[in-house]
Design a protein around this nucleic acid. Sequence first.
DNA 1: TCAATTAGTCAGAAAAACATGACCACCTTA
DNA 2: TAAGGTGGTCATGTTTTTCTGACTAATTGA
Lengths: 103, 103
Amino acid sequence: MTTLNADNTDDNCPAQALLKTLSGKWKPQLFKLATIAPLRFNNLLRQLEGSNKQSLSAALKELADAGLLSKHTLQTKPLHIEYSLTKKGKLMIPIFEELEGLI
Amino acid sequence: MTTLNADNTDDNCPAQALLKTLSGKWKPQLFKLATIAPLRFNNLLRQLEGSNKQSLSAALKELADAGLLSKHTLQTKPLHIEYSLTKKGKLMIPIFEELEGLI
DNA sequence: TCAATTAGTCAGAAAAACATGACCACCTTA
DNA sequence: TAAGGTGGTCATGTTTTTCTGACTAATTGA
């Protein structure tokens, strides 16, 4: 009898990594909001009641590292930084809608 | 400016609950294995290296509570208990395959 | 010049998730 | 009758995640 998953970072279960990057207290909401409009840091901090800088900062970074969000700086004064969906991120939208459809 | 998510159990983001029930150290693997064959407790405990009774028990319960797995007792001696995908659980399989496709 | 905005980082505390070992009941085989 | 399998629960401890408050730096408006 073979044992699965010698370690829990195993990618024999390919959806697991994606599920991990999307899970957490704020990431689903950040992803969802990003499908509507680009995200801005202090704006999110005000909108997401109960959130905090540290967690939002980490969540945005993880979503960006996963290739779902891209970060770009607008040359305004003061500088504004926007996080918006990448191509990969956009590809996920209809799949999420299907998931929501069967809840 | 309206604030979103007065509490973090909010269902204004419907995928969030589902994402939550599928996230965690063992649940993705349990779901995946359940797409192949019904799950049995001690069998999982042996197969999933590094797992433990407490966590598997909790994970199976959460997946069952979410309506993705159903629990039934086989009248064998000794009794065997099987967890298998519900209709809802089966509906999620192709959606997960799409997600995996774009990783 | 002082307060407030922009977007964060850092250290430490609190909360949540996960693991460990003891224990339970039932049944079977030796 | 003792050991080992079935499928768990419970209390406790460890590890990971999340939150809090202090701090940074540049820019704007009063």
